[in-house]
Simulated assay, not measured.
Amino acid sequence: MATSSVPSGPVSGPAASPDAVADLLGALAYGSLVAFDRLAADALLAPDLTRRARLAVMAGAEIGNYQRLASRLSSLGVRPASAMEPFQAALDAYHEATAPRDWLEGLVKAYVGDGITDDFYREIAPFLGDGDRELVLEVLHDTEYAEFAVGEIRAAIEADPRVANRLGLWARRLVGEAMTQAQRVAAERDSLVELVVAGTGDLVGVGALFKRLSQGHGERMRVVGLNN
Rank of each mutant, 00 (worst) to 15 (best):
A2S: 10
V6D: 14
G9I: 08
P10K: 15
V11L: 09
P14Q: 12
P14L: 12
A16R: 11
S17W: 13
P18V: 13
D19G: 04
A22C: 11
A22Q: 06
A22Y: 06
Y30H: 15
L39F: 13
A40Q: 05
P47E: 01
D48W: 05
T50R: 11
R51K: 08
R54T: 11
A59F: 03
G60C: 02
A61D: 12
G64L: 05
G64D: 03
G64V: 01
N65D: 04
L73V: 10
S75E: 14
G77H: 08
R79P: 03
P86N: 06
A90C: 03
D92Y: 07
D92G: 06
A93Q: 08
T98N: 09
R101K: 11
D102V: 03
G106I: 07
F120R: 13
Y121R: 01
F127A: 03
F127N: 04
G131S: 14
D132T: 09
R133V: 01
D142L: 04
E144N: 05
E144F: 05
E144Y: 04
E144I: 14
F148E: 10
A149V: 02
E152N: 07
I153E: 08
I153Q: 04
I153V: 14
A159Q: 10
P161Q: 02
R162M: 06
V163Q: 15
A164W: 06
L167P: 05
L169P: 00
L169M: 10
A171N: 03
L174A: 06
A178M: 14
T180Q: 09
A182R: 12
A182I: 07
R184P: 01
A186P: 07
A187C: 02
V193K: 09
G199V: 12
G201T: 09
G207L: 07
R212P: 09
L213C: 04
S214R: 07
G218N: 13
G218H: 11
R222V: 06
V224K: 04
L226D: 08
